[in-house]
């Protein structure tokens, strides 16, 4: 589904990613762990096409398409969804208007008709239940006045609305209590189709306990330095990253 080759990327002239190689097949979940500042969020931003980042070398293909040649919204409409680490507040833009614009853009890309207002509201109601999102929240401005946990739930709610085929969960577990984490993680599992793939960026084992990644990567200083099975996450939780740094000579 997603293939990243020798990806180098920088922001403001500073190189952050220094040659990432990553292949994710249909239906696979890959966890990416790493120290702060290792480039995890840069990786997700580059995949979805954040304008501040510059790709200096390498390629990303998504279902055979050259992702780097596509605009942010084209990538989104092709089925790539980022659950933001810190979702942006957009004062004055109601969740309803925002979601309708997004859903209809996705539908247009898939060749489907725009939803009527009635159909759309019905869809909102259905999907809201999955992440137990309060109806009050969908009548507010985007992320405005949401608590940290509500923002994360809202991200998964949007994922439910847009039905992406490739998701990036960027520290979706940060700032969530145990119950909220369960709701968000179970929501994700419910929404996920067998062919849906994902990158899960996290510091902790507990989210991975719900999501059952196929592979765990360790990202340090802009490179993937170690790749192993799910047992690696447990080991990192116990021992930290220093032993890996030593192992690879960093």
């Amino acid at each position: 589904m997603l293939e990243i080759n020798n990806l180098h990327a920088s922001i403001g002239g500073k190189e952050i990613l220094k040659g990432i190689n990553l292949t994710i097949a249909d239906g696979e979940i890959h966890a990416v762990m790493g120290t702060n500042g290792a480039g995890k969020s840069t990786l997700s931003n580059v995949i979805v096409g954040h304008p501040a980042y510059e790709v200096t070398e390498g390629s990303i293909t998504f279902n055979g398409q050259d992702l780097l040649a596509m605009s942010t919204e084209q990538r989104a409409n092709a089925g790539i969804f980022l659950s933001f680490q810190a979702p942006t507040e957009i004062p004055g833009v109601s969740m309803t208007n925002f979601m309708r614009a997004a859903v209809n853009a996705r539908r247009a890309a898939l060749g489907a008709e725009a939803l009527s207002a009635g159909e759309f509201l019905k869809l909102m109601r259905e999907k809201r239940k999955i992440v137990e999102l309060d109806a009050k929240l969908t009548s507010r401005s985007v992320n405005e006045g949401f608590s940290g946990g509500e923002k994360k739930r809202n991200e998964i709610f949007q994922m439910a609305m847009l039905e992406p085929t490739f998701c990036i969960l960027d520290e979706t577990d940060s700032g969530l209590d145990v119950d909220a984490l369960r709701i968000v993680a179970e929501g994700f599992n419910k929404l996920r189709k067998p062919e849906t793939s994902a990158i899960v960026i996290t510091h902790y084992q507990r989210l991975l306990d719900y999501l059952h990644p196929n592979v765990v990567h360790v990202l340090i200083d802009g490179r993937i330095v170690k790749t192993a099975g799910p047992e690696l996450a447990a080991e990192i939780e116990q021992k930290g990253f220093d032993w890996i740094k030593e192992e690879v000579g960093l």
Binding site: V48, G49, H50, P51, S71, T72, E73, A76, N77, F81, L82, F84, P87, T88, I90, F98, A101, A102, A105, R106, A109, V142, Q158, L162
Partner: peptide, 8 residues
């Protein structure tokens, strides 16, 4: 950017 990531 947030909106464009949602496909708008």
């Amino acid at each position: 950017f947030y909106m464009r990531q949602r496909g708008i």
